[in-house]
Amino acid sequence: MMRMFRSEWMKLRRTVIWALAVISPLLAGVTGFLSAGDYENGQEGVWQIALGIMGLLHAMLFLPLLTGVFAALLCRFEHTGGGWKQLLALPVSRSSVYAVKFIYIMLLLAITQLLFLAALLATGLLLGFAEPIPWRMLLVSALGGWLACLPLAALQLAVSVAWSSFAAPLAVNVIFTIPNILIINSAQYGPYYPWAQPLLAMVPRDEMGFGAFNLSPETLLGVILVSFVVFLLGGWGYFIRKAV
């Protein structure tokens, strides 16, 4: 298993994939910094407001869509030039190939989330927020957003493995992510929509809470878990039977 990690690492080194992890945190950081007028410095909960502004930009569309780009990129090397046949002809099990690719998606997303956290901290320090850093809230937000990407990553890996075109899996991703713009306003349906979960998990609920945001963490975790298991088992079951 360790060796497979290393072989995947060799494929990823010096590709654009690393640049992609930086973009969204950078964009969110710039927006957070430019929104300086929105937080009066002495005000209470200034970190929360910053997290709300930056999290909305980062997690409503970017994070779910980026998950799809990562998944498609991880399969690109195999889709071009008959790589699947070559890879699966080696003495490795299909399940571990699938598992390693999935773990890499989550790893790249973890890096993205850490960079987002760094961007948020940098914004606060540069603007000189008077409040102490609410570590617990920030970590829960970053970690929650990361966990909420689990089902999305599982589905995107499945469609990325299935289609050799790069844009097609991304189209699936976009089709399900665009409704976020409407659905997050709905307290009734938003909590049960897997693609809205990264945003719901990342934006602090007491301050910016509207629409779907006022829901217990247990419900959200349940939705994430159930959809994750369904997508992962479906994708894995498909891949181990797939003719390459």
Partner: peptide, 19 residues
Amino acid sequence: ANQAVPLTVGIIGMIVGMF
């Protein structure tokens, strides 16, 4: 050749374009 770049530019464009 790597379509990740144009598609990511498109994603950024969509988010930037919304605002």
